[in-house]
Computed example of a mutant assay.
Amino acid sequence: MIEFYTNPQSRGLIAHWMLEEIGEPYTLHVLEYHTSMKAPDYLAINPMGKVPALVHDGAIVTEVAAICAYLAETFPKAGLAPTASERAAYYRWMFFAAGPVESAVTNKAMGFVVPDERKRAAGYGSLADVVATLDQHLSTSPYFAGDRFTAADVYAGAQIGWGMQFGTLPTLPSFSAYFERIKTRSAWKKVMGGIN
């Protein structure tokens, strides 16, 4: 049994999308900020008091990228884990999205700018570096791991879509074309259709 803890106004939407992609039954627990998310029973699951979190057969998984990778590997029939030839690109882009993209986009949203003389100390360099790297890849590859949709596209793709929507990433032709491909998925539509 899968127990899924989230809030519709959080990164938990990405993990929710992934759950819909794998097609396995799960129980949805919607938590509220500053109340149930900080309650002792939930803090026993995630001491950070943040969502999302997943409990599957007693195992706890937090962090959106980890949840996506875990579900892809645990439920291989969904076809979202990488093949042997896709594995390097899959992990590269999954962790690029979890590290440089997440950091650069969050810093932009918070108004932080890395001074030019400090770029080498920041793991992502600059937002411009991150954007150029994503643009180069998505200009030549239809999906992050190659020619087919994987869990890396769930994780990184949602960030690109929301980045363009909220102005933390530019609306580049490569980003727009890529997001148009992935937002047609029925699991994406189901999750996003349930958001008010």
Rank of each mutant, 00 (worst) to 15 (best):
R11E: 01
D147P: 03
L127Y: 03
E32A: 13
G12P: 05
G79H: 00
P8Y: 10
F4N: 01
W162P: 01
Y90H: 06
N107T: 02
F149M: 05
K119A: 13
A122D: 10
A65C: 09
A177R: 14
A145L: 10
H16S: 11
K50D: 05
R120M: 12
I67D: 03
D153K: 13
R11V: 06
Y33I: 08
E24G: 02
K38V: 09
M37W: 01
R92F: 02
A69G: 01
P52M: 03
E3M: 06
T168Q: 08
N46C: 11
T150F: 04
P170H: 06
S141T: 15
G157C: 12
A152N: 03
M94D: 12
A98Y: 09
A89P: 01
K183R: 15
T62H: 01
V130M: 09
M164E: 14
A44N: 09
P76E: 06
E102M: 13
A151C: 08
R185W: 11
T74I: 04
E3N: 13
Y155G: 04
M1N: 10
E86I: 08
A98W: 05
M164H: 07
P142S: 12
L127C: 08
P40M: 01
N196A: 14
R181G: 07
L80W: 07
S85I: 08
T106K: 08
I67W: 09
P170M: 00
L172F: 05
N46P: 14
M1L: 12
Y178E: 02
E86Y: 05
L172H: 07
M37T: 10
W17H: 09
R87P: 02
A78C: 10
T140Y: 04
A145R: 03
T168W: 11
Y70G: 02
M164T: 14
Y5T: 02
R118A: 14
V61E: 07
L169H: 08
A15E: 04
N7G: 12
H29T: 03
K119P: 00
H29V: 00
A88Y: 10
A122T: 06
V113C: 02
E117M: 07
S139H: 13
Q165G: 08
I195C: 01
W93G: 01
L134E: 07
L71S: 10
D153I: 12
I195L: 15
R11W: 05
E20T: 11
R11A: 12
I45V: 15
G58H: 11
I22D: 03
V101H: 06
A151N: 05
T184Y: 00
S176Y: 02
M94T: 15
K108R: 15
L54A: 11
G193M: 01
H137M: 08
L127T: 05
A69V: 15
G157P: 06
